[in-house]
Structure formats: structure tokens, C-alpha cells
Design a protein around this nucleic acid. Structure first.
Lengths: 108, 108
DNA sequence: GCCATGAATCGATGAACTTCGATACATTGA
DNA sequence: TCAATGTATCGAAGTTCATCGATTCATGGC
């Protein structure tokens, strides 16, 4: 009889968890947003305001604000208002979660 | 004079590198593809053929083939033909690369 | 060679995303 | 209170993406 391979389980990642994790990975799945995270990580004090991102990114202010919102909703960064400016910084725990997720996919 | 924060560098990730890395993260930025990776990781022998993925995913065969292609082009999985079937398995090195990239964003 | 079956490709459709100008909101300084 | 400036939202245009039916390709068994 025809037989391919052992039937698969649902995998280690459930349906709802997959939705949540995929949204987080998707947040990093854009060059502009990846560079924002990179720039925040490389910033001297670990944070930067939106106005300093437009130049290096070469994007208009609404576009940068849009990307920052997506990263914020993904929990990858957080913003703190200081006067006129909003300083954004990385949320290390969230990135660590992603690293852990990739590790479980690797190790078994 | 008005001053916000220290001017930013380009970040640790360059423009071309950002494009490449973003494409890889984007490959994981879809629930179906994330579950495929998860299922391959959870498979007893570490591999599975496409026909076994359609059922658990609840997607049509062309759609699964489409997602497998994207994961393959991202270097996250590889397929090996065994007779009628193609067995897909994870490329651990590629996932390790992503983990390393996230680590550099965290630590510095 | 012919049929069965798994996999890949093609074409179409509808949704989601990126981008930006225009605009509104928030805060500071005068 | 008013002007200036950084930020967020809105609306629109163009592109990309996910999905699937229909079709084609590839392999194995008869």
C-alpha cells in the first residue's frame, strides 16, 4: 500500500501561537523596520527619537511613524515621551522570546 | 538651540544586509509557514513530505507548495526527492544565523 | 507505453501592505 | 494665547501577497 512518511502532529506551535509569533516575525520582515531595530540597538544610549530615524532611513515622517507603530504593537520596541520627542528603545525580552522560539525549532 | 538626541549611525545592519535578513524574517512572518517549520522540527525523523502537510495546515496543495517554495528560497528548509515524494527538512544553520542576528540586536 | 499519484507552475482574485501628502494632535517656548 | 516643532492619524495610490482551481511535470507500478 502507498505510504509516504509518518503522519505529522500539529507541531510544537499551535494555531493561535503561530498567529502571534508570525506577526512578530513579520514585524521584522521589512528592511526599514529591521534597520530601525538595528539603529536603536546601535544608539549610544539605546534609544532614539523618531525625528532622527527619517534621515538615515530615507523615508517620510508618516512612513517612519507607521513602522514604529507596527514594531510597538509587536512588542519589539517601546516609546517614552520626553517633552516634544518620543524616545524609542528595544524590548530585549521580546527578542529573547524569538531567539528561544528559533532554538526550539532547531533543537527538536 | 533645539536638540533631540545623538545623531544615529546607519546601524549595525547595512542596507543590503537588511534586505536579505528582512526577506528571511518575512518568510517566517506567516502563520502557515511558521507551522510548517514547527512541524518539520517536530517530525520524528526531522523531515516530512508535502502531502502530509496539507491536512494539518488545512490548505490546498498549491498553497502549501507555494509556502514551501518561499521557505526554500529563504534557505530555511531544503527538499530532497525520494521517489514520488519530496522530503523537506529544516536547515539548522540558517535558523542559527537568525538567532545570532537577534542576539546582536539585543546585546549591542 | 499507460495510468496513478505527488509536486510544481500558471492565472486570477481579493486582501493586506508600503508609501506619502495633507491634516490633526501634543508639547514647548515666547 | 500664539507660533514652532515633533508625532500620530487619515485617505489614497500602487504594489505585493495569500489563496485556490486548473494544468503540467515527475516518478513509480502495471
Amino acid at each position: 500500500m502507498d505510504f509516504c512518511c509518518t503522519p505529522l502532529f500539529e507541531g510544537v506551535v499551535g494555531r493561535e501561537a503561530a498567529d502571534d509569533m508570525a506577526a512578530t516575525f513579520a514585524a521584522l520582515g521589512d528592511p526599514a523596520r529591521l534597520r530601525i531595530v538595528s539603529m536603536l540597538a546601535a544608539a549610544p544610549d539605546g534609544s532614539a527619537c523618531g525625528c532622527d530615524l527619517e534621515g538615515p532611513l530615507g523615508l517620510a515622517q508618516p512612513t517612519v511613524s507607521h513602522h514604529l507603530k507596527i514594531l510597538r504593537e509587536a512588542g519589539l520596541i517601546e516609546g517614552e515621551r520626553r517633552g516634544r520627542w518620543v524616545h524609542y528603545s528595544i524590548v530585549p525580552e521580546r527578542l529573547e522570546d524569538l531567539r528561544a522560539a528559533l532554538a526550539t525549532s532547531v533543537s527538536v
